Computed example of a mutant assay.
Amino acid sequence: MDRLGSTPPRTPGELKQEILRVYNAVNQGIAGVGVSRQRVDLLDDRILILAQHQRVKALATLDPAHRDITRNVDVALLDEGKRRLAQELTDRIGLPVRVVLKDYDPNTEIAATVVVLDAPLVLTESRRPQ
């Protein structure tokens, strides 16, 4: 962020890479392991992240017999992940995050995250080598 509190323009590719690093770091902090695949799409004032996660081993073990319990833990982990992601995107990248919405399917281990911003993204054209 600059001294006026706004984010400097960056290319879409640069911003996507920053978002991927933050998203992976947040997941490492919560689950102890990063995601195995992730993709970011930038859509005006929204960011869409699709990621292949690795299920927390203890939860995967309990799922067949105790899905009611693991569902509650999943929701708690999702809530904490959304809180941390919003904070990190604001602090480390300077994005004006309004809300983070996230869902996770334990069977496929795929998560979809939508970050809604207070303002549209300010991006520059892709830089070309000279």
Results as ranks from 00 to 15, higher is better:
residue 1 M to S: 07
residue 1 M to E: 12
residue 2 D to S: 12
residue 3 R to L: 15
residue 4 L to S: 14
residue 4 L to T: 07
residue 6 S to Q: 10
residue 6 S to H: 13
residue 6 S to E: 05
residue 10 R to W: 11
residue 10 R to M: 04
residue 10 R to A: 07
residue 10 R to E: 15
residue 11 T to M: 02
residue 11 T to D: 02
residue 12 P to Y: 02
residue 13 G to I: 10
residue 14 E to Y: 04
residue 14 E to F: 05
residue 14 E to V: 09
residue 15 L to G: 00
residue 16 K to L: 08
residue 17 Q to D: 07
residue 20 L to A: 15
residue 20 L to T: 09
residue 22 V to Q: 01
residue 22 V to N: 00
residue 23 Y to R: 09
residue 25 A to G: 10
residue 25 A to V: 04
residue 27 N to F: 07
residue 27 N to Y: 12
residue 29 G to I: 05
residue 31 A to Y: 15
residue 31 A to D: 07
residue 33 V to L: 10
residue 33 V to D: 14
residue 34 G to E: 10
residue 34 G to V: 09
residue 35 V to G: 07
residue 36 S to Y: 13
residue 36 S to L: 09
residue 37 R to Y: 05
residue 37 R to S: 08
residue 37 R to A: 13
residue 38 Q to V: 11
residue 38 Q to R: 11
residue 39 R to E: 15
residue 39 R to D: 08
residue 40 V to K: 00
residue 42 L to C: 09
residue 43 L to M: 12
residue 43 L to N: 09
residue 47 I to Y: 02
residue 50 L to K: 11
residue 50 L to Q: 10
residue 51 A to K: 00
residue 52 Q to A: 10
residue 52 Q to I: 03
residue 52 Q to V: 03
residue 53 H to P: 09
residue 54 Q to F: 14
residue 54 Q to G: 07
residue 56 V to I: 05
residue 57 K to D: 13
residue 57 K to S: 05
residue 57 K to G: 08
residue 58 A to K: 11
residue 59 L to A: 03
residue 59 L to I: 06
residue 60 A to W: 03
residue 60 A to S: 12
residue 60 A to F: 05
residue 61 T to C: 14
residue 61 T to Q: 11
residue 61 T to D: 15
residue 63 D to Q: 05
residue 64 P to K: 01
residue 65 A to V: 13
residue 66 H to M: 08
residue 67 R to M: 08
residue 68 D to H: 14
residue 69 I to W: 11
residue 71 R to K: 13
residue 71 R to P: 01
residue 74 D to K: 01
residue 74 D to A: 03
residue 74 D to R: 03
residue 75 V to N: 14
residue 75 V to S: 06
residue 77 L to K: 07
residue 77 L to I: 08
residue 77 L to C: 03
residue 80 E to T: 05
residue 80 E to K: 06
residue 80 E to I: 06
residue 81 G to R: 04
residue 82 K to G: 01
residue 82 K to W: 02
residue 84 R to T: 04
residue 86 A to T: 04
residue 86 A to P: 03
residue 87 Q to V: 12
residue 88 E to W: 13
residue 88 E to K: 06
residue 91 D to Y: 06
residue 91 D to V: 12
residue 91 D to A: 13
residue 93 I to T: 04
residue 94 G to M: 00
residue 94 G to V: 00
residue 94 G to A: 01
residue 95 L to Q: 02
residue 96 P to Q: 02
residue 96 P to E: 02
residue 98 R to G: 04
residue 99 V to R: 04
residue 99 V to D: 10
residue 101 L to Y: 14
residue 101 L to P: 02
residue 101 L to E: 12
residue 101 L to T: 11
residue 102 K to N: 11
residue 102 K to F: 05
residue 103 D to A: 11
residue 103 D to S: 14
residue 103 D to E: 14
residue 104 Y to P: 00
residue 104 Y to N: 02
residue 105 D to F: 00
residue 105 D to H: 04
residue 107 N to K: 12
residue 108 T to L: 08
residue 109 E to K: 04
residue 111 A to C: 04
residue 113 T to Y: 00
residue 114 V to K: 03
residue 114 V to N: 06
residue 116 V to T: 09
residue 117 L to S: 00
residue 117 L to R: 00
residue 118 D to Y: 10
residue 118 D to T: 14
residue 119 A to G: 09
residue 120 P to N: 14
residue 120 P to L: 13
residue 120 P to W: 13
residue 124 T to S: 07
residue 124 T to G: 10
residue 125 E to V: 05
residue 126 S to G: 08
residue 127 R to N: 07
residue 127 R to C: 11
residue 128 R to A: 14
residue 129 P to W: 15
residue 130 Q to M: 15
residue 130 Q to P: 07
